[in-house]
């Protein structure tokens, strides 16, 4: 489509995007969103869901990979679900983002000091201890959680659980205010 220049054959680079989806707090809504992603071939990297300050609304933070046109499709198709109140795409918006992880790692007495040092540097916490293990809680950006996981792995990680990323725009803007704008 050279003349039209609509680039039908141009492949774009897949990128990670963080989107927030505000939905009716009703049973089955998660299945609707997850099912849509699955059947349209959208990749979910992580998904975190919980209730908001308005008990009738739940908030999902979804990290997806895809090129720009995929991301547009994700936004539009998700918005079409009747129970979806608002999709907010945080691409290009300054955000604060956090993830929480718990990491169980082998901790022989001889190596404990070394592990505790890493925990300190990452401002993580040891939240459980046994004869042979530490369970460590860490909060931070996805990259930070990745990094501590990497640094702990030589000690022998036996279990990891991560919440998936949650995110908010910086400054005064709130997701809820965007809902009201639209209603």
């Amino acid at each position: 489509m050279s003349g039209g220049g609509n680039g039908r054959e141009v492949m774009q680079k897949p990128m990670q995007h963080t989107i927030t989806v505000l939905v009716e707090n009703k049973p089955g809504v998660l299945a609707r969103v997850a099912g849509l992603f699955a059947r349209r071939g959208f990749n979910i990297e992580s998904l975190a869901v919980s209730i908001t300050d308005d008990p009738t609304i739940s908030r999902m933070t979804i990290v997806v990979t895809g090129d720009d046109s995929t991301l547009q499709q994700i936004n539009k198709q998700t918005s079409k679900l009747i129970d979806v109140i608002k999709v907010i795409d945080y691409s290009g918006v300054p955000i604060v983002e956090r993830e929480l992880a718990m990491i169980k790692v082998k901790a022989e007495p001889s190596r404990r000091a070394e592990i505790m040092q890493i925990v300190d540097i990452f401002r993580a916490k040891i939240i459980d201890i046994s004869e042979t293990t530490f369970t460590i809680e860490v909060t931070g950006s996805v990259a930070k959680v990745d990094a501590i996981e990497r640094l702990l792995s030589p000690f022998g990680i036996t279990e990891v659980v991560r919440t998936g990323k949650i995110a908010m725009a910086r400054g005064e803007i709130t997701a809820m205010s965007q809902v009201n704008d639209n209603a």
Binding site: M1, S2, G3, G4, N6, R8, S69, Q73, S79, K80
Partner: peptide
């Protein structure tokens, strides 16, 4: 398909726009 053409796409469903063929 319609290789030499610019495209005007009119639809009530925003998700149809750009789903298959980008619109000018």
């Amino acid at each position: 398909f319609a290789k030499k053409a610019k495209v005007i796409h009119i639809d009530i469903d925003p998700a149809e726009i750009g789903k298959t063929v980008p619109a000018d």
